[in-house]
Design a protein around this nucleic acid. Sequence first.
DNA 1: CAGGTAGTCGTTTTT
DNA 2: CGACTACCTG
Length: 1048
Amino acid sequence: MSILREQLTAGFEKIYRQLNEQQRRAVDHLEGPVMVIAGPGTGKTQLLAARIGRILQETDALPENILCLTYTDAGAVAMRQRLQSFIGAEAYRVNIHTFHAFCNDIIQDNRTLFEKNSLEPVSELERIELIKTIVDGLDKDNPLKRYRGDAYFEISNLKNLYSDMKREGWDAAFIKTGIREYLEDLPNREAFIYKTSRAGKYNKGDLKQEAIENEKDKMARTAAAADTFVIYQELLHRHNRYDFEDMINWVLTAFREHPYLLAQCREQYQYILVDEYQDTSGSQNALVSALLGDDPTPNIFVVGDDDQSIYRFQGANVVNMLNFAQAYAPVLYTIVLTENYRSVQPVLDVSRALIGHNEERLVNKLPGLEKVLKAAHPDRMHDLTVPRLCIYANPFQEMAGLAGELESLIREQGVPPEHIAVIYRENKYGEALSRFLQMKDIPVYAKRKQDLFKEPLAVKLLTLLRYIAAETEVPYSGDGLLFEILHYDLYGVPPVEVARLSVEVAEKSFREKTSLRAYLQDWLKTRNPTLFEQRPHEALFEVARKLEGWIGAAFNTTLQELTERVIREGGFLPHVLQSPDKVWLMQVLSAVFDFVKAETRRNPELNIGGLVRTLDLMERNGLPVAINRILGNEHGVNLLTAHGAKGLEFEYVFLAGGNATNWEKKRKPSSGYTLPDTLLETPAKYQEEEELRRLFFVAVTRARRHLSISWCRENNEGKALEPSRFIAELREGSDLPEETVTPDSNRLADFAALEFTAAAPRISAEGQEWIDRLLDKFVMNVTALNNYLDCPLKFYYNNLLRVPSGRSEATEFGSAVHHALERLFLKMQESEDRSFPAEEVLLNDFRWFMHHHRESFTREAYARRMEYGQDILRHYYQQYAAGWNKVVSIELNVRHVVVDGIPLKGKLDKLEFNGNAVNVVDYKTGNYERKGTREKLLPPNEKNPLGGDYWRQAVFYKLLLDHYKLKDWRVASTEFDFIEPNKKKEYYKHRIDITAEDTATVLSQVKTVWQQIRQREFYTGCGKPDCHWCHFTSTHHQQLETEDAETE
DNA sequence: CAGGTAGTCGTTTTT
DNA sequence: CGACTACCTG
C-alpha cells in the first residue's frame, strides 16, 4: 500500500461509513459506466468526493489519472474543497476542471496544433469590436443595415446568433436550408390561409400574402445574419482570438484531426467523472464521448438530476442524459438517490406534486426508474411544518409583509438571518426588496452584478475623461460636459455660480465666438478680460486649472498615467474616504482604473479618444462592465434568484412573487432573429414551461424546514393578478391552506413613508437677482414654450441659462438636411427662370455641410449618414420637385412681434404663398412613424390636455405671423414635411389646419407660461422619472430642497 | 375571424 | 426600436 493510500484510508473509512446504501453502491461500482440520478439534497458532492477517494484507494490510478468535469467554477472549487477534507493536499493533483478551463488548457498546451503561436481567448469587448466591423462592412441594401437610430443595434443580436450557431453546430447553409423549407411550407399552414371571405378583398382559402411577406422579411434578416458568421470566424482567426464556444469545438476538431492528442488524453484520464450532467450542452457532451472513445465499458461516472436542469437557454440539454443511458444500456449501472438529507417530508411531498407535471423526465423515459424523495431523518418529523401559501394584496404589501416576517423571525425568535433566504425569479425583484429591507435595518446578503457605467462615481470619472478627450480632439467642443463637471460635489462650486458663469458666456458668445472653457482661460490668463464683468467664483478657477493641466497632459502621458492623475488630483480620494460607503466606492474607482489598464494592455496604442469611443460603443450596446457588489455580509438574510439558489439550502425559504406574470406568463424577449421552426425539433412552448417548472422546483427544494410561497392579488397599479399555475400544482394531493396576509397598518405606513415618493427637485432661488436681467431680455419662442410646459427646469437650463449643448450626430445631420433644402430654394429664387437646380446640386450642398461639420461624427457615423442623407434627399427631390410651390419665403427670421404685451419670435423654414394666405412648412428629420411622433401632432385631448409639441408649434407660427406687422399675411395652415421616409420609402407631410379655437388655446398657454416665467416659477422640476434636468438637479444641487408631492 | 391600434415591456447565467 | 398582447371594430 502506498503512502497516499494509507493516508486516505483512515479519513475515507469514516466518510464511507456515513454513506447510505445507494450511495455506497455508486461509490463501489468502480469499473464501467455509472449514471447517478441525484435528486435535490441527496448528497451529490459527498458522493463524488467519496468515489474519487475509493478509486485512489482501490485501484492503481494516480490522482493525475482522474478527471472530474464540472459546469461552473464554483462547482469546481466546492468539489476540490470537499475532496481535500477527505484526502488532504493530494486533492490538488486530481484534475478538477470546468469544461471550458479543461479545453482552454489543451489549446494552450498544444498551440502548434491550432496553427498559431499566439492565441488568446477573445474578450467581451474585442468581440463587440469585431462584430462592429462586420456591421460597418454591411452593404447598403443588406436588411441588417441601419442608418438611423442605433446603427449598431445588431451587434448583440449577432453575438447571440453566433453563440447559438456554434453551440448547435450550425452553419449558414444549414440555416438557409431550414429557411427555404420553412418558407415553402408556409402555404400549407392554417395560420397563413384565410378562413373566411371578405367581399372584394379575399376569399376563404386564399393565402394571407401580407403575413407571408412578413415572414419572408424576417427570414431575410435571419439569413443575412447567418451569412456574416463566416466573416466573424475569419476575423477571430485573423486576430488570433477564439471565443468560449470555440474552446470546446476546437478541441473536438483537434481530437479528430490529431489522433495522438486524443490518445494521449485517453491514456492519462482513466477515470472520468462529470458533475451536473444535466447541464452539459451538446458539444460538451461530444467532448466526453470523444474522451471515452469506442470502449464499450468506459470508466465514466456521471451525476445529475434531470429535474434540476435549468440552463437550457445556455444550451444545456437533458436529452444528453437519455442518450447516455441508451448508448451504454447493456452495461450501464444506474442508481437513483432518493434519500434526502435536507428537507422535511411535507416540502418533499409538495415538490414532488409539482415536478410530477413534467413529461420530459427520465422516470418517464427509462423503464424501472423511480424517484420519490424520502426525508432521511424522519425524527425531524416531530416539528413538522407544513409549507405556507401567503396571499398579499399587492407587491408593496408583499414586501412590507415579508420584511415583517423576517423581522420577527430574527428579532423575536432569534433565528440567525443567514438561515433565511428569500428566493425570487428576477434580480429586479431583489433590488427593490433589498432596498426595502435595508431601510428597516434587516441585515441582507446578496451578491449582485452591477454595471460600472451606472455608478455615479464612475460616471463622473468617465465624464472627466470624455471631456478631456473632446477638448484634445476638437478644442472647445466639450462645453456641455464641462457644465456638468462644474456641478460635481467633488469641487464644491455653488450651482448658482455655474449658472452665472454660463449666462455670462452665452451672452458674450453673441459678440464673439467663445465657450465656458475659453472664458475661464481668459480669466486665468488676464485676471480680468473686460472691466465690466464680475469675477467668477474662485472654486471655478480651481477646477479650470486642473482641467487645463489634464488636457495638456493628455498629449504627453500614457492613458494610464493620465487616468491615475485624474483620480489623484480630481478630488476623488478624499471624497471616497469621507463616505460611509467607502469600501464600495473604492471598488468602483479601482474597477474603472482596471478597465483602463485592461484596454491599454490589449491595445498599447490606445489614446484617450480611442478609449472614449470604446466606452461609447459599450454603452450603446448595453454592454455592462460588470462589477460584483456584495450587499451586506454573510450573516444577513440571503436574497437570491431561483437560478442563483441552485445547490444551496436554508432553514427558512420565502419564495416571493409567485404570480403567473413572473413565471409562465412572463413573455420572453425576442432573441433578435427568428429562426425557422424547421430547425428545432421539439415544440418550444412546451419545453419552456417544463423548464420553468424545474426552476420552481429548484426554488422550493432549497427549504430545509420552513417554506413559504407568496403571491399578490393585484399589481401596484391595481390590475388583478393570478397565481402561477405551479402553485396550484404544488397543492395537489396535500391540502395546503391559503392565508391572506395583511401587514398591519402601522407597518405599511412606515414603508409608505420610506418608499420613494416621487419628489420634484427644486433649485434654491435665493441670491439670483441677476436672473432679472435675463428675464428682461427674454423673448417668447416655441422651444421655450414647449420646454417650459414639459419641465420648468428644462426651460431654466436651456432657454434662460442657455447651457451649452454638444452638437449630437443626429442634430448635425438634421442641420445638414435643412441647409441643403434651404440652398435649393434660394438657388431657385436666384435663378433667372426660377427653376430648381438639378438634384446633384442639392446633394452637393448636403455634402458640403457634412464635410464642414465632420468633427461632430465618428468616422463610421460620417460615412453612414453621408450615404443615408444623399439617399433620402435624392428620393425626396424626385418625389416633390415637379410640384413645389415657387412663391416662397425661405428661412425667415421673425422678430419684434408683440401679442397682448408679450414679445414673440421665431424662425421659419419655409413659407408657401397663395395670395396672402400662407402655408408654413417645417422640415422634420426623423421617421414620422417613430413612437410619440403622432401624439406630438395632435391638438389637446384627454390624455394630453396641453396638446402635442408639434401642434403647438404650428399654432404658434400662426400667432407669430398673423401679428407680424411688416406683412399682411394670413396663416392658413402649417405643414410638417418629413424628410425621412418610412420603411416602405413613403414620404409624408402632415398638414395642420388651424382653427380659431386652436389659436385661442395656444395664446392662453403663451400668456400663462409668460406670466409664470415673469414670476420666476421655474425652479421646480416636473418630477417625471425620466426627466434629464430633474435628474441633473437632484444629483448636483447640494442645497436642493425637495418639494413634497403631497402639497399638490 | 381579420385587421388595426394602443399599450406594454424588454430574464435567468456561465465561460 | 420592435415584438407581442389586449382590445376594439367591421
